[in-house]
């Protein structure tokens, strides 16, 4: 009996710590912030990849996303995806957040060297996207690579 009560308490606490929303509720929320950054998401390399089913390379083009003080590239991506109803998936937490896929295009979909990378103002920072703090007016680009960044100019 004691065990049963304990178990139900644990399950209840897990449920309470989760916030469950319907898709309509989720996409209705508007993220507001003082600062703005420009974000674009592009997968041109995946369109060119052999036997690719993707036709459109532009997922998001120069979208003005607002963010708060101390926010990172990851928060900007999250807000932009939410506002434009774009699917994305990540793993990890804190500084080690890693973007697995955006708009149903995942890492390893175009060969074993493929995945998402980002640049800020034309430079590819070598830190995780949740460790890079934004400055007002930054231009973020999320680019899909099929060759560890060589085909998008991240590695020379």
């Amino acid at each position: 009996m004691k065990k049963l009560i304990l178990l139900s308490l644990i399950i209840l606490s897990v449920f309470c710590s989760c916030s469950i929303k319907t898709p309509e509720e989720y996409y209705k929320e508007k993220e507001k912030g003082k600062y703005t950054a420009t974000i674009s998401i592009n997968c041109e390399t995946a369109v060119k990849y052999k036997n690719s089913k993707r036709k459109k390379s532009e997922i998001l083009n120069n979208y003005k996303v607002s963010y708060n003080k101390g926010d990172t590239v990851f928060t900007a991506l999250k807000n932009a995806c939410k506002a434009n109803k774009i699917q994305f998936e990540y793993t990890g937490a804190g500084d080690s957040v890693y973007i697995e896929g955006i708009d149903y295009l995942y890492e390893f979909d175009c060969g074993k060297h493929s995945g998402w990378e980002y640049s800020v103002n034309g430079v590819f920072p070598s830190v995780g996207c949740n460790a890079y703090k934004l400055k007002n007016g930054d231009v973020i680009k999320w680019l899909y690579t099929c060759d560890l960044g060589k085909d998008i100019g991240a590695v020379k």
Binding site: S19, I20, T22, Y26, K78, Q87, E89, G101, Y104
Partner: peptide, 16 residues
């Protein structure tokens, strides 16, 4: 653990 897929049922902690 997997959030891929077009038909969203609901969101848990901002994950579909």
């Amino acid at each position: 653990f997997s959030h891929n897929g077009r038909t969203v049922l609901f969101f848990i902690n901002d994950n579909r």
